[in-house]
Each structure stands twice: as structure tokens, then as C-alpha cells.
Design a protein around this nucleic acid. Sequence first.
DNA 1: GAGGCTTCATTAAC
DNA 2: CGTTAATGAAGCCT
Length: 715
Amino acid sequence: MDGVSGPGTQSQPSFDKSRVLDVKPLRTLVPMFPNPPQAPPFVCSSPFGPFPSGFTPFYPFSMGPPGSQTAGEARNQDGAAGYATPAAAVPLRSFGTPQMGAHFSNGDTGSSMEASRDINFGDGGVGTASGSKKRAASTKGLSPAEAAAQRKARKIANAAASGDIRKPNLANVVGLPQVQREDGNREVVNYVIMKFDGVRRRLSQLEDSKEASTGLIKRADLKAGNILMTAGFRTNSRKRIGAVPGLDIGDIFFFRMELCVVGLHAPSMAGIDYMTVKTDAEDEPLAVSIVSSGGYDDDAEDQDVLVYTGQGGGNYNNSGKAASDQKLERGNLALEKSSRRGNQIRVIRGIRDTSNPSIKIYVYDGLYTIQESWIEKAKSGANLFKYRMVRLPGQSPGFGVWQSILKWKESVSSRPGLILPDLTSGAESLPVSLVNDFDNEKGPPYFTYLRSVKYTKSLNLSEPTYGCNCHSACAAGDLNCSCIRKNGGDFPYTTNGVFVSRKPLVYECGPSCPCFPNCKNRVSQSGLKVRLEVFKTKDKGWGLRSWDAIRSGTFICEYAGEVIDKTKYDRDESSDGGDYVFDTSREFDKSFKWNYDPPLVGEDTAELSEDYDIPTPLIISAKDSGNVSRFMNHSCSPTVFWQPIVPKVGGSGAIVAHQNAKAISVDTSYGVNCRHSLRLLVEMAVTGKVSSGGASHEAVGLLVGSSVAWGVYDG
DNA sequence: GAGGCTTCATTAAC
DNA sequence: CGTTAATGAAGCCT
């Protein structure tokens, strides 16, 4: 046996493998595919709520295209109620309705499809007359700040239009209708966040490339935020005390600008957000939200109590100013007033991962009130305002979960319900723990752990070989690198390894490329990067979730399993054997709405409209052998998507380059060279909810929680 | 690899 | 109504 055994076999060498066949498979991962032409649009959305983000959903089995119904019915049904969205939620596609369309000045609301395209990002045109007209007209009803920002954006747009054609010209983004702009809901929030990150990734990509590094783009996060804010592509802009519609406790963010565009916390920098409330007597500033990020000497150890420091006085860590007394004005005054009134204040906690200090996330931790405030002397001798903030009881956990995770990372055995610290037995570069804190089941049925796809027969690969001549590492913007040219001139990943935009096929550097293994174009070849956990769900068998915050575009894993014959698959499917099968031959989503949108001016979009077929379709079964991906459950609002990636073809035995001896090595006697592997990328992560592991239908991925943002889920 | 520095966006307040 | 000041983070540079 050339593999690593699944749980149970270590202690039971004589494990009866036939049990595998006795146990009804838990779930199937079906790749996400577009609606077939004959199907109505948005099949997946209704009635479970709209699915605006455009990454193609995994079909709920009960709702897939007509052809997939038969097998689907027999499989585990996606809990219909589980994915219902609040009745109040306004479907995004209704943006195209006349009442919403009125907010579009271009009048292009003839059809809902057209209008919904416009919602995304206008017409994508250069700084044309029509574009300018649209912007001018849409200035109506904007605040002075917005109008000023828009003027600024126009300048940038003009500069871009007259200059280098590849410079981003995203200034013609069309904002959301006034209704959504002021008051959001979950769909709108998810949509805004997704667009924010799409633009941010694209700007990052351009920034990475040499030609643009001399240009205007720095701090892609700020830039992306500015573009959206300027256009009015934001939500919950109306300030309010208390909860914000569409935002849940436990939602996570990776940039301050994200808090801004979703209306959780308006200031792009300041830690205290407040609003002036008119009373009979006088106008009173009241705090609405605070961000505790570690810049001041806050005491944030306790889950439910936060001692927050006021702002100003040069007491901030990175401030170059001499420290002085803080004044009772602005945010400090607002906190004081809120304290007197006993008002609720939203708290966002910044968290630095001790194992990876470069990553900082922001977790929305719900509502607090101020219990007491006082003045305290800083080390510098300056007076600081201190506020003891206490979390309102009865709220679902947010920050607390992350604190627990930090402990688990220090000592796996402290994880409640732990069955195995690493179910891969060392096959993966990171452990994957097996946990059941729900009932007494001791683990999933037996399977063999594979790190990669296993080929049981030779495949006739016809794709041309490609390979670059780069030494050490391929560099973004280097068009001499043939791998980059294969990718249309863009580096598919940002420097920190985040996938930028979906496309039919991504070309990574392969075995015959001379570049080093740490080349930035080898992201999916380096195995697990995210700390995962297989856990028992309430009603969906076993599922997969993460201990790490997974940023949108993060590579998670490939779909490992055994490649099987189509005929065998067809036969199995009729007898309920289709579970765990991933069929890559189906077409996948053509809309790519996860991407920045529209394409930058002058960008060639031809490749997106032609051939979506991947070169060598595979049917992969993870029933008997597979990796963590076999535990990903189906969801109608998935947090991951599938992206075909090819490494270089050719070079015998290349797949064995996966070095871990305990892993199943690919049997090269079948003539396996390096094939294209299928890998999963996370769509995620921006507003993930943290779950303490209750495994409700939505509490799936530890770090993920709702439609946008989970790395992994059960469903 | 740690720490300092620079730059940037928003909005209340003037 | 236009302008300014206050605020802090992220990533680069040293």
C-alpha cells in the first residue's frame, strides 16, 4: 500500500476496508458550473436568495440544471431553509428595476441583465464623452466630500485616458443606487466587499509589475477603497448607532477601507467614529464605533471587556509627534457622551496572528457599552482618556473565537473534542486536525490520504509544452518570461500569493522551468498553507473549516483523488456512487464576476469570450482516496471556487516532486508525468464570520461564515 | 528581520 | 460651500 491510511487504521491494522463500501458517502463536491443556456438565469439564487457575486455557485443538488437532477435528488439535499436569506434582503439583480435604475444617469436600464452589468462598473469605456456625462450627472445628490472626490477621480481618469493605456481607469465605476448606498443588507455588503477586493487585487497586480510601479498605484487597498467610495459603490453610508444591516458579529476584514465601504466604521484612519445627534437642548456628538488595533496601549486581553484609549495627543505608537495630553474633543468627547447616555457602541477588534505577525485582521465583535472612564498618565507623562467597554451579553462569539484559536495553535491538545491532531499523518505540510465537539462519532469512514491527483492510466495530453528561461524567480511585468506571456502578460498572483482574477486556465511554472521552487508563479505547488480542521457538523456529516483567516484569492488545495473513467463514473452515478466525484469536463462560469470589473481600458478580453474548455477533462473520485477537499461540503453560496491550473507538461516523474515520503506517491509505472492538476482557490474571505464550531448550517468554516467569506464549509 | 518612515482617504469642523 | 486639520495603517525602505 503506497499510501497513508486514514484515521482508525493506525490503531486497527486489520481494519475492514469493505466498510468503506458500506457507509453511505457523506457528500459530493460538484464543481461550479454556469447555468446552461436553456436554464433561466440565477437558477441558484432563488428562492434561497440572490447570489450576486457571480462566482459560480456549486449547484444545490435539488436545483441544478435539468440534466443533473436525477443523481442529485438522491444525494444529500442542501438544507433548503438553511440558505434562505432574510425576507428583507433586496436581490441585487433588482438593481435593474426602474426604481433603482433611476439612480443611473445613463438610462441604460433596458433589461435587468444590462442594468446589473452596469451596477458592476459602468461601461468600461475610456474617458469618453458618454463616460464624462455619466459622471457629471451622477454628481447630483452627492455630499460635498463625495463631489470633491469625484472631481479628483475625474482627473485621474483623464490622466489615465491620455497616457498609458494599461493604467487602470476604474474611475468610471457606477455607484450603487441611493437606497443600497445608505442602508445595506447582507447581499449588498457581500457584493461591495467582493468588488472592493477584486479591484484591490488587480491594482496590486499592476503595482507588482515593473511598468506600473513607477506610476500612481501604491497602497492598492486605499486606492481600491477610494475608487469605490468616489463612485458611491458603498453601503450603509448613513451613520447609525447600534447594529448595521448586513453585518454580522464575527465578520472579518483585512483592511480598514473595507470597514469603510460597508459602513461599519466610516473613518479611513481614525479609531473612533461618531455622529452628531440633535437633541432638544443641544447637538451632541455620540460614538458609533471604535477600532481597537493595538496602536494605543489598549487592554484587550479579555473577551468581553476592552479598556480603550482615547485618541490624539501624539500618543499613538507610530506617531512621530511628542506626546501631549489628550483633549476632551472629537472622538473622546463622543465616547464620554455615549458613556453618560449608556449608548451602544460597535467594537471592531484588530488581531495580529502570533504565528504570522504580518497578517492582521479586523473582527467585528458586536456591541459594547462604556462602564466607566477615567484619565490616566501615560509613560510619557501625558494624560490619556481610558474607557472601560463591556460587551453586551447574549451576543454570538466574535473575538473570543480567535483567542481560542491562538491557544489551539500553541497546543493542539487544548482543542476541545480533538480526535486526531493530524489526520494526514504528516502527509501535508501543515497538520489537519480531526475534531468532534458535537457527538460521539470517532471519525469519518476510512479513506486513503492523497496529497495530489492520482492517475491510474496514461493520459494522452496534447497541450503544448511551455517553459520559461527565468533564473531564480519569474518577475511580474517581465514579458520575456514565456510563462507570464502564457498568462496574457499578467502575473496570475500578487506578490503575497493571492490569486488575482479568474480565467479559463492559469499557467504556473512547471518542472522544466529553471526558476526556483519559490518562484511566485508556483503558488499551488507548495501544498497546504492554511491550517485546516475536519469537524463533525450538526447534520451534514463531516466538514472542513479553517483556523486561519483566509483572504479572498488564497489557494487552498487541489482536489485530490483518483482519476477514473467516464464510463465507470456513469455507471457509479446510477448507483449512488457519484458522491465524492469531481467532474472537470463541465464548463465553468463565464461571468468571472469575482474579478475586477470591467477590464481595464484597452485590455484584451477576447480570451474570455472564446474557449473555456480545459485541455484535458478529468473525472476525479475522492471516494476511497483523497485529501482535505473531500470534506468540503456543498453550498449554494460557496466560499470557494475551482480554478484550473496547469504546471508545465512533460518531464518524467515530475509529480513525485512532492517530497513527503509518507504521502502517496504517484505510480509512475502508469506513465504519469506531470499532468495538469486541479486546484481550488478560495473566494473568500472578506467578511467571514467566526464560528465557535457549532456547525449550524452556516457556521461552517471557522473563519467563514456566510455567503462571501468562508474558506470552506459544510452545507 | 525589525523598526522607522512615508503616504494616503475620509469627514467633521471651520 | 470650499478648505483644512486630525486621524492611523500598510508596506516599503533602511
